[in-house]
């Protein structure tokens, strides 16, 4: 009775989504994805760069004791800074933007994502990874921007738990990462063509977590600046490469199917995939 009730009431995903499942597998998807990524990638990186500019402005305001309500003029300021010295806010963001389009001037090893392997087929993915993908899928399907932001904000604590050794340090910069992800999500959500790219954000965040964990293991202190740079770097790595973006979206789609399959089974209180099993399979980044 309860199972049927749940099936009836569950509306976590909409009917007909499965017809797109082959979309991510097809080679024909890449040429369609490439132009969307070409416009979305710089916009997403600029959205993160906006946080550097905003904080710089706030510092300047404090110095001159000006009290301008920033929320009111934020968009105006954003567009103003779009063209005036947009690389001045942070040189790293500037180099990322300049390197987009296949000539990324990054050290590949720094932001290289570990997309290959077990997660592709989902069997070894931890509950946190599956839930991240599922929430990102929900965000891309949300009816309002605010709801999408809530789902995207929830990704950050889940991502921080993926690498327990660095979780505390990453949590300390969580507010900055949440702000960054929220801005990227907002940018991608606003256009219906780029909205599906929200599904790449779990991959971006997992990469960001690994980058930050590596810094922690090297004894480097984490700050808002390093966290936002790591996020922007991983956004560039995924969104500047149609193949990586396609793979990330495919992972998200599969996770969605997995959760949907789970919803149609009788309820079980058994843990899904324990983190300990997951850790045995993949060594910690640190």
């Amino acid at each position: 009775m309860f199972e049927y009730e749940y099936e009836f009431e569950t509306g976590l995903d909409r009917e007909g989504e499965c017809e797109f499942s082959s979309e991510y597998e097809s080679d024909q998807f890449l040429p369609l994805l490439a132009p969307v990524l070409a416009s979305a990638a710089p916009a997403a990186i600029k959205a993160i760069g906006g946080l550097f500019r905003r904080r710089r402005r706030r510092r300047a305001q404090r110095e001159f004791e000006l009290e301008i309500p920033m929320g009111e003029y934020e968009d105006e300021y954003e567009s103003e800074f779009e063209y005036e010295g947009e690389y001045e806010a942070d040189p790293f963001i500037g180099s990322l933007l300049q390197g987009l389009g296949g000539a990324l001037g990054l050290n590949e090893s720094e932001f290289e994502l570990e997309l290959e392997g077990e997660f592709e087929g989902m069997p070894g993915a931890s509950e946190y990874e599956v839930m991240m993908e599922h929430l990102a899928y929900q965000a891309s399907q949300s009816e309002s921007e605010a709801e999408a932001e809530a789902f995207l904000g929830a990704l950050v604590p889940l991502a921080a738990r993926l690498i327990p050794s660095a979780a505390k340090a990453i949590t300390s910069v969580a507010p900055s990462i949440i702000q960054g992800v929220a801005r990227v999500g907002r940018t991608l959500y606003r256009s219906p063509t780029s909205r599906k790219l929200i599904r790449t954000l779990p991959t971006v965040l997992k990469g960001t977590t690994r980058t930050l964990a590596r810094q922690v293991s090297q004894g480097k202190p984490l700050s808002s600046k390093t966290a936002l740079r790591a996020l922007a770097g991983n956004v560039a790595t995924v969104l500047d490469d149609p193949k990586k973006a396609q793979r990330a979206m495919r992972n998200c789609h599969r996770a969605q199917h997995r959760v949907r399959t789970m919803s149609q089974r009788p309820t079980s209180s058994m843990p899904s995939n324990s983190m300990s099993n997951r850790r045995k399979r993949r060594p910690a980044m640190a």
């Binding site: 605010a146 932001e149 929220a182």
Partner: peptide
């Protein structure tokens, strides 16, 4: 920002 508030809400819920 309403959207930013929602992002923090999602984060503390998670």
């Amino acid at each position: 920002s309403e959207a930013e508030a929602e992002a923090y809400t999602g984060a503390f819920t998670a």
